[in-house]
Simulated assay, not measured.
Amino acid sequence: MSLQIQSQTSKIDTVHLILDGKLDAITAPELEKFINDQMNNEIKTLILDLGNLSFISSAGLRIFAKARKMIKSRSGMVYFTNLSPQVKKVFDIVKAVPLSEVFQNVGEIDAYLEKMQNKVSQENQ
């Protein structure tokens, strides 16, 4: 099975990628190219929806690590959502990302981001 990548842009500085299929040594370069092509300097938030990702290898984890490094260098964040059970297991085993970057769905991410922004606003008053 190949990897299908859908891209949605909800805000000028946010890209939401929905992955479907297998992310392995064969498909990882495709995702890396897609991310590099999509990630202009204005992008500060990358949301990766993994609900339909049926398999991930170390090659796929490396792509996620590279994306996190690139976005963090811009003071941005990468969030993972809708982890399929098998992908969640891999994340748990290898401690791929901090739990603060893993969410059940996009609504949960939005609520978290709103809370964090409100906290900063209150601190600045």
Rank of each mutant, 00 (worst) to 15 (best):
G76Y: 02
K66R: 10
P98K: 11
N105D: 15
S100T: 14
F64R: 00
S100V: 10
G76L: 08
F64S: 02
Q86H: 07
L113E: 15
I93C: 02
K95S: 10
K115S: 15
K66F: 00
L83Q: 07
F80E: 10
K66P: 00
K89H: 14
V106E: 13
M116I: 14
L99G: 14
S73V: 02
A65C: 01
P85V: 06
I109Y: 00
N82S: 08
S84E: 05
Y112L: 04
N82I: 01
L83V: 08
D110S: 07
F91D: 06
V106N: 08
A111I: 09
V90M: 11
G76E: 10
K89M: 15
A65S: 08
P85D: 13
S73Q: 10
K69N: 11
L99W: 05
S100A: 11
D92S: 09
K89L: 13
F64G: 00
A96R: 04
K89Y: 06
K95L: 06
P98A: 06
A65F: 00
Y112M: 13
M70I: 12
P98L: 02
Y112V: 11
K115C: 09
L83D: 06
D92M: 04
K88C: 08
K72H: 10
F64L: 05
P98Y: 00
F103Y: 12
R68A: 11
R74G: 09
L113G: 08
V94L: 06
G107D: 15
A67S: 13
S84V: 03
D92P: 06
Q104S: 12
R68H: 04
D110F: 04
K95C: 03
K115D: 13
V78E: 02
E114L: 10
K115E: 15
I109K: 04
I93E: 01
E114C: 07
K88N: 15
L113H: 10
F64W: 00
E101H: 12
E114A: 13
V102S: 04
V90R: 14
A111P: 00
I63E: 03
Y79L: 05
Y112G: 04
R74K: 14
